[in-house]
Design a protein around this nucleic acid. Structure first.
Lengths: 115, 115
DNA sequence: CGTTCATATGAATCGCTGTTCATATATTAG
DNA sequence: CTAATATATGAACAGCGATTCATATGAACG
């Protein structure tokens, strides 16, 4: 007979958020989980930028960048501002900075040789 | 003639981390960007758990969970402990808690109606 | 040793997603 | 209005990755 773990299961089930919330959370991190998007976000940490500047910076197509910016915008991670023909993108809030920073810290500690 | 943005580009290029680091960062977030893995991590925030308990909790195959646990382990996000036939998984550090919490905060503010 | 329970692993499949290409929209200049 | 620049978008394609299925490993127990 298989072993029992109803006790733990009940406890965990109680505190587990709804499926929908957990999916939303995964979707958010999915956005950070792409090299191109991470680079865009990192660049925007420094200063607002127009699309072609980002494309130039990353050595990628304007189209590719535009597609990614759309995803970032849909997730409310960036916002835009028009100035003539040019559109400047910027971070919409400071959460990006904190989230990225936390990721960084984990990477650093991970690469440390054990003391 | 296309418009100029060398000034900003130079500044940003200076402070942009190496490609390798940015990829590692994206890879880290990629791990959080899957519903199954987020759920596993969330469960482990509460208490350590054996594989079949997690499978039971999420209503998924033992095999599927095992595959995901391997990914989490390779990324040093979880560790394991053997007790007879059973193997208990636990979070390897508290960064998971902080990273997830930050993601949460963004979600909450995002869903707020503007004041 | 052989059986049972718990977990791991490898191959195959199938859906998702990032890029490309072609084209559309928008703004400014002439 | 036409041309040029800047960005957006849609369809198509390719590669990756999560699950499934079958099977292997590993431990305890008689």
């Amino acid at each position: 007979m298989p072993h029992d773990h109803e006790a733990i299961l009940q406890k965990v089930r109680q505190d587990l958020p709804t499926d929908e919330l957990l999916c939303d959370l995964a979707d958010l991190f999915k956005i950070f989980g792409d090299t191109t998007r991470i680079k865009i976000l990192y660049a925007l940490l420094e200063s607002e930028m127009c699309v072609c500047a980002i494309a130039d910076l990353l050595g990628m197509t304007q189209s590719a960048i535009s597609h990614q910016l759309r995803i970032l915008k849909d997730a409310d991670l960036v916002g835009k501002r028009r100035e003539g023909k040019t559109i400047y993108y910027h971070l919409s809030d400071e959460h990006v900075r904190t989230i990225v920073a936390q990721g960084f810290e984990h990477l650093i500690e991970e690469q440390m040789p054990n003391p």
